[in-house]
Amino acid sequence: MAATRLSGGAMVIAAQPRQVQNAIDSIWTTLAAIPDPEIPVISIVELGIVRDIEFDNGEVVVTVTPTYSGCPATEVIAAEIERALVACGLERFRVQIRLHPAWTTDWIAPAARERLRAFGIAPPGERAPQQTVDVSRLRRSSIATIACPRCGSSRTRELSRFGSTPCKAQYRCEDCLEPFDYFKPH
C-alpha cells in the first residue's frame, strides 16, 4: 500500500480511490500556483502544459507537454514543479515529458486569456489553425485582425512574426501607437 505525505502533514493512503483523487486534486491546486516563468500573470496549469497528474505505485507522475521545442522555460518549469512537490512533502515523484498530442494555444484557459490582455499581451484566437492538414499552401490565406490590448483598436499591424519569446509576435497599434505582443495561435 503506497503512502504519500501531502501538505499539512496528512498521510494519504493511495490505495483508497477517493483519497487518491483528493491527493491529485490537491497537487493540481499546488501546481496552479506556479506562474509561467516568462508570462507570470498566468500559471503553468492555465497555460495548458500540465497534462496529467496520476499515482503510479505510490509515485506521483506529473506529465508536461512543452509549448515550443526550443522553449528555454521548459526545464525551469520542470524544476519548479519538482520544487513545489518537495514543498508539499512528497518524496516519490517524477516529471515526464509528453510530446503527443502537441501543445496548442487552444489549451489556454479562458480566464487566462483575459489576464493576458490586461497584462498587455493580445491573447491567441479561440481556435488555432489546423496546419497539419494542408502543406500544399505556403502562405497565410488571410491575416486575422488582432485587437490592441491597450485601447481595443482593431487598426493594428504585424511588425514581426517573432517576438521576445517563441510563442509571441510583435505588433503595433496604429491608434495609440504602442507596440504590443501577440500570443500566436499555435
Binding site: S69, L99, P101, A102, W103, T132, L138, R139, R161
Partner: peptide
C-alpha cells in the same frame, strides 16, 4: 510525434 510537433513550428519559418 517529434515531427508533428516540429511541423507546427516550421509553418512560421516557411511563411517568414
Amino acid at each position: 510525434e517529434i515531427a508533428a510537433k516540429a511541423l507546427k513550428e516550421v509553418r512560421y519559418h516557411v511563411e517568414r
